[in-house]
């Protein structure tokens, strides 16, 4: 890290001293719906470090998906700029892959075909090697020839993550990737995502509306307010992995966010 290394700013920047990978500058988004202007995002200022794991947390409809789509280049913000590696984002790019909920797996391709989807430029043998490597990483050996409709939700989600990893992107955007899974599978998948992240050190932006999920995974949790979405607070999670989810510090951080959102601890 040379000139681009910069000191940590108070709340916006990453906690460790690393290069800035992604930066949003005053990003806002206003949709037009039935002639009326609907402000969805306001003044989003955020810096994400290289290799950092950031969770965007907020209530449904606050604009998390919109922000993530804008970062990935699927939408152009109506105000402000989004830069990755200093360049303004102008459209989607294979260096930054968006992982949808498991719905993004192509039903007409086998597991193998899905994982190798972004590798058509490689030679056949090279591709086969890559596919089998990531197949193994997500634990789907033996399902190479299966079609998505023969798989469970968790397995489909693994296929999608492997498809993204296979093109070796530097940034991954995950939009509530485990939202449709049962709670046990969800826990397992979180563990696997962390394992993969620690092995590959991608920059990850992870959208969730689940407070526990955010505190278990993230280096920093970006708490957003209800629509129009603004950054309410950024909470660094200073617990090392593997995290003990019954430790006092974990509970303290989680309860802090709960309070921030305005929820009591009793039902």
């Amino acid at each position: 890290m040379s000139a681009s290394t910069r000191p940590t700013s108070a709340t916006q920047g990453p906690t460790r001293n690393v290069r800035i990978k992604l930066r949003t500058e005053n990003v806002s988004m206003i949709f037009q719906r039935e002639g009326k202007a609907l402000p969805v995002l306001e003044d989003i200022d955020l810096e994400v470090g290289d290799g950092e794991f950031v969770c965007l947390l907020g209530p449904s409809g606050c604009g998390k998906s919109t922000l993530l789509s804008a970062m990935a280049g699927f939408l152009t913000p109506t105000g402000g700029k989004i830069r990755i590696d200093g360049e303004i984002v102008r459209g989607p790019d294979p260096r930054r892959i968006f992982v949808f909920q498991e719905r993004g797996v192509f039903p007409w391709l086998t597991v193998e075909g899905n994982i190798g989807f972004g590798l058509s430029k490689l030679s056949r043998s090279e591709r086969a090697k890559r596919v089998s490597y990531y197949l193994q990483m997500v634990g789907l050996e033996g399902f190479e020839k299966s079609y998505p409709h023969e798989l469970s939700g968790g397995m489909k989600q693994r296929v999608e993550v492997a498809r993204a990893l296979a093109v070796n992107p530097d940034v991954m955007f995950l939009d509530e990737p485990f939202g449709a899974l049962d709670s046990i599978t969800r826990l397992i998948m979180r563990g696997e995502l962390l394992r993969i992240w620690q092995a590959e050190r991608k920059t990850i932006l992870f959208v969730t509306h689940d407070i526990d999920e955010a505190v278990q995974l993230a280096d920093r949790v970006v708490v957003m307010s209800a629509r129009p979405g603004r950054i309410q607070q950024i909470v660094p999670i200073d617990i090392s992995h593997p995290r003990d989810i019954s430790s006092p510090r974990y509970l303290e951080l989680r309860d802090g966010i709960l309070g921030q959102i305005g929820l009591a601890h009793r039902l």
């Binding site: 990935a72 989607p92 294979p94 930054r96 968006f98 949808f100 993004g104 989807f117």
Partner: peptide, 8 residues
């Protein structure tokens, strides 16, 4: 479509 575009 988005996934396809994303892969370039």
């Amino acid at each position: 479509r988005r996934a396809g575009i994303n892969f370039g």
